[in-house]
Amino acid sequence: MSDNIKAATQEYATRLGDDAVVLGHRISEWVSRGPFLEEDIAYANVALDYIGRARMFYGYAAELANDGRTEDDFAYMRDDRQYQNLLLMEMPRGDFAYSQVRQLFIDIYYNLLLPELVNSKDDTLAAIAAKAIKETRYHLRRSRDWVLRLGDGTEESHHRAQAAVDSLWGYTHELFDMDETEKLLADNGIGVDTTQLREAWLKHVSAILSEATLSVPEDGWAVRGGRIGYHTENLGHVLTEMQFVHRSYPGCQW
């Protein structure tokens, strides 16, 4: 692996790890707060999948960095401006509709991205994708079912689901942006060209929203910046909470 490819791969794995750990954190906030017990179980399960994914991506980033850092150094010892997760991941948990609509957007995204990443020339990324894809199929079944139920349930649930779609839509555009790092990896058959995924994503999302009697917002509003560490104010609070114990006792093993 050439040095620039190696550095880009490390950054890519870190970004995917950031996405997973931040979303896993948000989902875990639901545990003991679901609308009924089965949903608490589902939330814990999905959060666990994402924390597992974060460990695999960070573990690989640490291996490539080869400077003594561990998966925990990536999760716990980096600040707001160093985190490169997509903004959608860090948005607050909101109400049940907000969390399920966010999950639908992300699940459809990963259901397009992971089948590409499985073909990566990088064996480790391909292996992580192969494991994650099974989980993500199950996640999508759940988020799709819930968006249908909420959209086509009661007047209140419809209203809440539509409000969630409208307020999250602006954060979905950057899912399909590519910077130099990601272009380099895509050109070399290692990363996924996400610009190629938007059309399929939009089609799939629109079909589900339409079945759920929800409308697809107009494009035009788009917030970007996650991949360059330019975050919303939400992330700082996530990291404050997540990193507090770890950072309070420097250098300890847990």
């Binding site: 179980i41 959060a47 924390i51 925990d72 999760a75």
Partner: peptide, 25 residues
């Protein structure tokens, strides 16, 4: 859950709480 000091511990704790909800069920 949101403050577990390592990712490994966080994953184990999630799994444990998931079991507990299952026991409740």
């Amino acid at each position: 859950l949101t403050r577990a000091p390592s990712l490994r511990r966080k994953a184990i704790l999630l799994s444990k709480i998931q079991d507990e909800a299952g026991h409740g069920l």
